[in-house]
Amino acid sequence: MIAFSHVNKIFGTKTAISDLTFTAKQGEIIGLLGPNGAGKTTTMRLLVGYLIPTKGTITVNDLSPYQQRYELSRKIGYLPENNPLYGEMKVVEYLSFISSIKKEKNVKSIIDSIGLSEVMQKKIEELSRGYKQRVGLAAALMGAPEILVLDEPTSGLDPIEQEKIRDLIKKFGKQKTIIFSTHILSEIETIADKIIIINEGKLVYQGVKPKGKGAVEKLFKKVVKIT
């Protein structure tokens, strides 16, 4: 379903991603793990077609994210890093805008399942970080995407809000393929079926999430230290 094949991404003289190859099957929840600056966000942006690879190929459901971005954008729900939103809009206006573009008919059920009913008339810039993240997630869910791409979905949230977002991801993971990036190891343990670890732009591990408490941390320290 998702296939990266020898993908490189170079910005000027800096190589952000080098020879990245991995696959993801339908219905999997994949955790993309790596230290800060490893290339997680670049990988996400390549996946949704916001960036074009310098070398290599990417396919998502047999479509190219950069050549068929428009067709693919109907199948992917994306929550970018730092969750950019139109702060001057009210939540109801923003979600109405997104739902209109994505032709979503069941807006109310998404709003209810995410828990945004009580803040619909508030301006986005007035919301807490946790609620803003929920707005971003609600927008990503619109249009019934088959794949959710979430870039650090719990970044900057307090532990309670992190837990709530993780619960939502697990809930939607039963119906969709999810790829989420994080540098929080406990999130991988809680949510992911499969892990991809990248470090300094290179793939260092790809496989099923190891079982046992602390197993992910042990694996991460082992593979990141080796490179």
């Binding site: 954008s73 109907r74 970018p80 939103l85 702060g87 994505k102």
Partner: peptide
Amino acid sequence: RTNTMELLLTLPIT
């Protein structure tokens, strides 16, 4: 500046 360009360019709008 606000990075909403990333949002806009990943929506189903050309």
